[in-house]
């Protein structure tokens, strides 16, 4: 193990390390802690210039209550869920099929198609922006959740295919051959042999895509406009212009907007990290 395990080092370093850990963590999370402090302060503190002193009163319930009951925030949150969840299902479904095709079969153009998915996944969003906006307009889906979902599903299929294909490649191939010898139809092999083995990959992709889509901002402002369909990342900016300089509300709103992916991460940590670090180990 590297660096040297702490148990095998000098006593003084062991003690230093134990103190250092929380101190470094606090410094690392300082900007976030600052926002959390902002979000429980009363309005008066900001008008009186008491930005960093002790809060003159504890207004957490008040501030968060305002966010939830007196603003468009709940609508934006709901929109985010209604965009994110169908996208996750769509992208995972499409890519488990493409990943299966590219991972199991040998045919001409296999690698070419695979590389097309990878390359497409890396292109700058801006080169897609004008045509995708046009396409969405001509489908009459501009400023709808469906328009946003369709694009997200298509785009995420690139990354998901990379992920699924590499995962399927690592499965024991004799299993598939054995099924073939038994005369099992190919689509049944997919459904009953491969898919059950892909559960960890499906879970990892689902949490990753959830986070990616929830946090998307660019496409939200390109393809949607108002509180009817905009997700919370775009909503938070209009929320902030509504409460300009009301730092206590803006920070409470930001925390609420950031929470679902954070909760997802802490609940499904193992899958999340397995997904993100795919390929980091040979």
């Amino acid at each position: 193990m590297f660096p040297t395990p702490i148990e095998k080092t000098s006593r003084s370093w062991q003690i230093t390390y134990q103190w250092l850990l929380p101190v470094v963590l606090i410094i690392w999370l300082l900007p976030l802690i600052a926002v959390a402090v902002f979000s429980i302060k009363p309005d008066a503190d900001f008008t009186n210039g008491n930005y960093w002193g002790i809060p003159s009163s504890f207004e957490m319930f008040n501030n968060y209550g305002k966010v939830f009951f007196e603003s468009d925030m709940p609508r934006y949150l709901l929109n985010s869920f209604m965009i994110t969840i169908p996208t996750v299902i769509g992208a995972v479904a499409l890519s488990s099929m493409t990943g299966f095709a590219l991972g199991v079969y040998k045919f001409r153009g296999n690698l070419l198609i695979f590389f097309m998915f990878i390359a497409g996944n890396f292109v700058p969003f801006q080169i897609l922006m004008v045509p995708v906006r046009d396409l969405t307009l001509s489908l009459n889906l501009y400023d709808t959740k469906t328009g946003l979902i369709l694009f997200h599903v298509a785009f995420q299929t690139g990354f998901c295919t990379l992920f699924m294909r590499n995962f399927i490649r690592a499965l024991p191939f004799p299993l598939i051959e054995a099924a073939r010898v038994e005369g099992v139809a190919e689509w049944r092999i997919f459904l009953y042999v491969v898919l059950p083995l892909m559960k960890p990959a499906l879970a990892a992709l689902a949490v990753l895509i959830f986070t990616f889509i929830w946090n998307d901002y660019f496409w939200a402002i390109v393809l949607t406009q108002g509180p009817d369909s905009q997700p919370v990342t775009a909503g938070i900016t209009s929320f902030n212009s509504q409460y300009r300089a009301a730092y206590h509300l803006m920070s409470a709103g930001s925390i609420v907007a950031a929470l679902p992916p954070v909760a997802m991460f802490f609940l499904m940590q193992k899958h999340f990290i397995a997904g993100l670090t795919l390929g980091a180990v040979k």
């Binding site: 901002y217 990342t233 950031a258 992916p261 954070v262």
Partner: peptide, 9 residues
Amino acid sequence: VISQVVVGL
């Protein structure tokens, strides 16, 4: 895990 919009704010 936090969205870049919130990190920016």
